[in-house]
Simulated assay, not measured.
Amino acid sequence: MSFSVCGESFSAPMHICGFFDSREQQYEVIIPYILEGLETNDKVINILEGNRHGEHCRCLADNGISIAQKLASGQLEVLASENTYIKDGEFAAEKMYKTLEQTLLSASRSGYDSVRACGDMIWALKNLPGTDELLEYEAKLNLLTPQHAVSLICMYDVSSFSPSTLTDILLTHPYVIKDGKISKNPHYVEPLEFISNLSNYRSDKLKS
């Protein structure tokens, strides 16, 4: 299952962290990615804060996407962070993992070639209960994605997250988008190794 991002072609599955310094830069990358998926037979899922949905849908419509039709058919889903990542006011990593897994299985059963998902991770700055499970969740996605035809872009605003958090996030994504370009991530750590070392890693951070 091939897809394009940042003007380059790749094959799913892929788990990508997108580092963006503005909303404009974010949309320059994800609009072509979303458009391509909707023009083919991919299921497209966007997760972002509920208060951004109007602006997001207008942006998609301005780029020629027939929003109502795509939403009605179920090919496009625009979901709220507060109903997914932080449902009931907390981040439950295991629950979110299972939700995503069920979504991927359902898309496959519905006859979609693959799934493209973009998730805005700004919710993680609210420090809600469970947010400390984010790194483990990101690492575990690398066990899930190889089993499915899926490309995931986790979108991080570099002006909002601390440099140390962004450094940590890098460890859990095989590919990274930075300055509008995508590359293989040399800092990536395999998921089982990362998870087994997570407690040591956290205690080292506390000491430093």
Rank of each mutant, 00 (worst) to 15 (best):
L125V: 05
D120T: 13
N127V: 10
S164N: 11
L100K: 15
S164A: 08
L143M: 06
Y85K: 15
P191N: 01
Y201E: 10
A93V: 05
P146K: 08
Q69K: 15
A93C: 04
I65H: 06
V189L: 03
S203C: 13
L48I: 07
N200P: 14
K95T: 14
S2A: 10
T103I: 08
C57H: 13
R116D: 09
V5Y: 05
I86D: 11
A124W: 04
S114C: 15
F19S: 00
C57W: 14
H53A: 04
H53E: 07
Y137D: 03
F194A: 01
L71R: 06
F91T: 06
H15D: 03
S22D: 00
E36F: 02
L71Q: 06
C57Y: 15
A12C: 12
K98I: 11
P186E: 10
R116W: 10
E138S: 02
E24K: 08
A139C: 12
E77V: 11
V44F: 01
A80R: 15
D113I: 14
Y137W: 07
N83P: 14
Q102H: 15
A12E: 03
L79W: 03
K207T: 10
V78K: 03
S66E: 10
K205I: 09
G74Q: 07
M14Q: 01
Y97I: 09
I31G: 06
K95F: 10
